Simulated scan of single mutants.
Amino acid sequence: MADRKDTLLSFLRDTRLHEMTIELDQGVHRSIRFGRPGSSVYHFRLTTWAGHLAISGDMGTYVFARHHDMFTFFRPVAGKLEINPQYWHEKMQAGCKYGSAKTFSDECFKSAVKDMTDRWETTLGEADDLRKEIADELLNGDCSNEHEAYELLRDFSSRDGHEFTDVGDYDLTDWSHGFLWALYAIVWGIKKYDQLKDGRTQADHDRRVLAGDRADA
C-alpha cells in the first residue's frame, strides 16, 4: 500500500529541480511541461481541453473529465498539496497501461483475513491452532497479486472445517504509488501555474515571509 505522506515526500524529492515550460495557454486549452532541464527523469506534462485533463510523462498517463476547466476541479485549496484519490478516480476516463491506479495490498489482504476469521465461533484452544494454521497457509505465504490472494482464500479449509465465504466482497487493493504521485503532480503543477499567473515566484514568496506577510505561506 502506498502511503500518501511517503508518496508526497517522494514526489517533492523527485521534482525538486523541475522547471515549468508553458507550451500552450489558450483558455482551457493548455500544454504545460514540468521537468529538470536536460533530463526526462520524472518529467510530466499537464494537457487540458474542454472538460478534460491529462497527465502524461515518466510516471504514466491518466485522463480525467468533470468540469469545463479541469484546473478548477483539481486546483489546490489555499495552496495546500492535498489529494482526493477516491473521488478523483471516479472521474478518471483512462488509466496508465504500465500500471493500475490500484494495486494489491498485503495490508488489505491481512485485514480481510482478520475480519472474516473474527466472525468464526471457536473455543480458546481451537482459536490458537486456527491462527497458526492461517499464518502458515495464508499470511506467511508467497502472495503477490489480487488473483492469487482470492484463490488462497477460496481454497482454504482448516482442519476443523472453517472456510472463507463471500471473499469477493473484500477489496484487496489500495492506491498505487504511481497514481498518488500523478495526483500530487497535478495539484503541484496547477499551483505553480497559478503562481506564475499571479506573478508569485518562490522568490516573491520568500520575500513576503521575511517581511512578515504569511498570507500565501
Rank of each mutant, 00 (worst) to 15 (best):
K114C: 02
D118F: 01
L152V: 01
I55T: 02
E107A: 13
L24T: 14
I22P: 01
D129W: 10
E137M: 11
H68G: 11
G168V: 01
T48Q: 05
A54F: 01
G95F: 05
D115P: 02
D69A: 09
Q26S: 15
V113Q: 03
Q202E: 15
T48L: 08
D142H: 12
H205D: 13
Q26P: 00
E90M: 11
S158A: 00
G57H: 08
K192Y: 07
Y62R: 15
M1T: 07
S100F: 05
M116N: 02
L9S: 10
K192D: 07
E82G: 08
A54I: 13
F104G: 00
R30M: 05
H177T: 12
L196V: 10
H67G: 03
M20K: 06
T165K: 12
D106W: 13
A54H: 09
M20T: 06
E163G: 05
D174E: 10
H29G: 10
E148G: 01
L17E: 13
G35A: 06
S10C: 09
D136E: 13
F109V: 06
L138T: 03
T61F: 11
F104K: 08
G27S: 02
G51V: 03
L196N: 12
A149W: 04
L9A: 12
D118S: 00
S31T: 11
D198M: 14
S31Q: 13
S39Q: 02
D3V: 04
A101Q: 07
Q93R: 14
L153T: 00
M1Y: 01
K91D: 05
R131E: 14
A149H: 05
V113D: 07
K132C: 11
M92I: 00
F109Y: 15
D106L: 14
A112W: 03
D25G: 00
E121L: 08
W175E: 01
F34H: 01
V209L: 07
I83N: 02
F11N: 00
G125Q: 11
F64C: 06
A78I: 07
V187A: 12
T21Y: 04
G125T: 11
S105Y: 07
D136L: 13
H67D: 15
V28M: 08
D128S: 14
L53H: 04
F179Q: 01
M70V: 02
F71D: 10
V41A: 11
G189P: 02
G141I: 01
R30F: 05
F104Y: 10
K91E: 09
D106N: 13
L196F: 13
D106A: 12
E23C: 08
A185I: 02
I55D: 06
H89L: 15
Q26G: 06
V167E: 10
T7M: 00
E148N: 07
A54L: 11
S31P: 00
I32C: 04
K192M: 13
M116C: 04
R16G: 00
R16L: 02
F104H: 04
A127L: 12
L139A: 06
A211N: 09
Q93N: 08
E137T: 11
D25E: 14
T47A: 10
F164H: 06
D106I: 12
H52M: 12
A215F: 13
C96A: 02
T103I: 13
A215R: 15
T7A: 04
G212P: 04
P85A: 03
